[in-house]
Design a protein around this nucleic acid. Structure first.
Lengths: 202, 202, 202, 202
DNA sequence: CATGAATGAGGGTTCATTCAT
DNA sequence: AATGAATGAACCCTCATTCAT
């Protein structure tokens, strides 16, 4: 270890802190409505000072989303590589999603709200790539489930995909970490509704 | 009929057209990212000309949302006043919601994306009022359903409320009117998933 | 007399009315702060309609000021041509000025407030011409008065000119026609102060 | 003394410079006709840069007028608190006024031209307050003077108040600091006219 | 690392003016 | 004569960004 490493680690931490602050403000006010000055206020510095740490407001957004998606895919890939049955896969994906919402609430909220406009930009092409992988993972799981009679035969798979996807991620808009339900508990209840429905079985 | 009535009707139509155009652009690009010039471009006029018809960009947004909510509540009130059982009420509310998404897709999308920031403003306090009524209508329907054993006894009613609410309205982000499914058809499939779940019954 | 003359007279009257309205608004709110729309509102018509009667906002201002100055000079020329002594000339000019304030209060107020900026424009060069004649008339009267020992020998004539000029015209800013003092009465009191001062003579 | 004090002093100076520039342009062109860009041009910067120092064009105007009135009242209060006779008070007030015109020519000119419209606004209510105090100070001085036989018994005190007030302040429209007459010299001549009149005493 | 001051590109809005009806 | 709708230039202001200190 050289003497510069602790300094480098401190710098990394500062970046992380600042990104966290930025993510919170982006999530709460919307990316466009968030001024660089507001972020700086929350961080206790002046707007110009942020440019020592980051190239631009957009690069902060990019880093926030990239970090989130990298971690999300670490979790998803572990699930998808585990060779589970379709129902278990779906359960694991949903649970993993709620865990990500718990850890990256702000990033998820930003993603939900802004990704549709952002994908059009070259710089955020990685969002489209992620969406394609996401769709493929879910669709194949659902199709496998229908084929293996784990899921109902009459499902419109694309519609169901959108149903489950939205249903899970929109939760980021109201979820508050540290609330009375753990992510796993919320996942369990969501899965119960999605899998078995809310109606009483006759 | 006086001679001025056709002119007044024409003026109303023009307003309506312009609001439709504005709603589309707001929905597609986001309210903040939409410049008045973009709206004017879409309408084939200059930015300043819009101010002959409207007081401000914000007043356009307000009128779009007010018109949508007024119509929505016309439909909802009819359902709620019909004294249906809880399951039928839920079915009717969901179906009505998809009809509104069909008729006011842009307004619904705007509502979904912007209402959280907007309610903080005095001018958009009517959104909060609508949300309260909305929540009350759904919660009471769900509670009634649990009491009457139409819905499962183990439901977390608040969680279920959010689940169903989001599930329905998020559809506005991908729904395209004139597609292959009618709103009623989509409502039917959503209801099938929400009520009976996607898993095969053993 | 042809049949068109009454119509022409009516048109002249309408112009006069509109100019009177415009002058009032200009005087009250300032020329720049007065929008064409405000004038039209006061006249009970739409902004565009004014352009049937006048070429531009500026041409309204010009006509208001020209009409006022024409009448003012009619009065002044009568006084100056009457071959009075310097003190009597001064008294007559001041009295005439208060009569003009009474008749053209709005125009005088506009003149006071705006002429300094306006003279720079070609179109309003007539204001400069009027100011030159004005200055000449007053200076020569004062100089004559000093020479003939009607006015004090120690007067700084230019300073006195500005003193008397401002003192009189500024009255337009608070004068209200139809108040308790007639213009002649106000003139008398002003003259008493200007000629004899406000201090008690020992 | 800390190290930050010189910086704070420099910032104060910059504000002062900019306000001086703005006041000059406001005085010359009128508040409404003055664009923020023109001020910035005179200050050698871009329009947007002014907003680093000031909240708005209006706040610049407010600060200019407040600063002027604060200083004016410092001077007036000293005079009024000195327990002079009415004639000496009047002389001192007039002299003080010309000194203020000398120091704040631009602000006085702006005040003269704009205050009538401005008082209507909440933000400029302090102008009305100042006017009330001003009127009270002058009226009581004049009344005292009449009672103590320093001023003529036949004065219409309100009319005289307006006469003197206008007489003094209008001078700001032509006065140029650094000209051949000092403010005290001009005050002396004005007082001579106001107190003793311009006519020869018989 | 952070500040203070400035840049420059837009953004929402106003308004005198035009013109077909 | 007057209306209704539109134009286009300009205006005040915001904000991401830069940079010397």
């Amino acid at each position: 270890m050289t003497a510069t490493e602790p300094a480098a680690a401190a710098a990394r931490d500062r970046r992380g802190e600042l990104l966290g602050t930025a993510a919170e403000v982006f999530a709460e006010q919307g990316y466009n409505a968030t001024t660089v000055r507001k972020i700086a206020d929350h961080a206790g510095m002046l707007a110009g000072s942020l440019y020592y740490h980051f190239d631009s407001k957009e690069s902060m957004l990019e880093e926030i989303l990239r970090t989130f998606l990298d971690e999300l895919w670490d979790g998803y890939d572990a699930v998808l590589g585990a060779a589970l049955g379709p129902r278990e896969t779906l359960e694991a994906l949903v649970t993993e999603s709620f865990r990500e919402i718990d850890r990256h609430r702000a990033a998820v909220a930003i993603y939900q709200k802004e990704s549709k406009q952002l994908v059009a930009q070259e710089r955020f092409a990685f969002l489209a790539e992620s969406q394609r992988r996401f769709e493929k993972a879910w669709l194949s799981t659902l199709e496998r489930g229908v084929a293996e009679r784990a899921f109902r035969a009459d499902l419109d798979v694309r519609l169901t995909y959108r149903f489950v996807r939205d249903t899970v991620w929109v939760a980021a808009s109201w979820y508050r970490p540290g609330g009375q339900h753990s992510p796993e508990e919320i996942a369990r209840q969501y899965l119960s509704m999605v899998l078995d429905g809310i109606a009483v079985r006759e």
